[in-house]
Amino acid sequence: MNIFRLAGDVSHLVAIIILLLKIWKTRSCAGISGKSQILFASVFVTRYLDLFTIFISLYNSSMKIIYISCSIATVYLVYFKFKATYDGNHDTFRVEFLVVPVGGLSFLVNHDFSPMEILWTFSIYLESVAILPQLFMISKTGEAETITTHYLFFLGLYRGLYLINWIWRYYFEGFFDLIAIVAGLVQTVLYCDFFYLYVTKVLKGKKLSLPA
């Protein structure tokens, strides 16, 4: 464990909690892409199946349980409890265009052709594009609530910190995982446009609105 990975995990946890609190407190999931939340929930479920087979540390296991339970709770809030506030008309990204290629790629490019490894690889590839429905929805509505932009900022930051963690681990431990690194790069690059808007607008107290 190094400071960058820990900061990344904390940033990820903050993002997940911000979203959950936003929906719970405002009792509304306006502006939130339910499709992205379903993708994130499946990312965690497919990646953390080893929760019951391998014990790494209390930290590792508890974080996995928190991630899985919060993401499933968020999906529940969006599609069941606060379904009336779900903006389905703008959440129209065709996720099959993500899941099918990612599924195929995880069979073709992986470290080991075993069920657990293929599911892990699927999860890594899926996570790199899981935010697309959310970014697509914001581009369609032309704006995002400020709290939602903070959620996206910490979510995008987490994998960026993981990239630094992988540089650190390569330099100090000679460890690197090309699949995770390439997917992490793609994932972080997808946020660059948003990061620019976040820094130039939201941090200056303006609302995030895209030229519709």
Partner: peptide, 10 residues
């Protein structure tokens, strides 16, 4: 270098 990933990352 260790190419294989240890399952220690989230």
């Amino acid at each position: 270098t260790i190419l294989k990933r240890e399952k220690d990352e989230l």
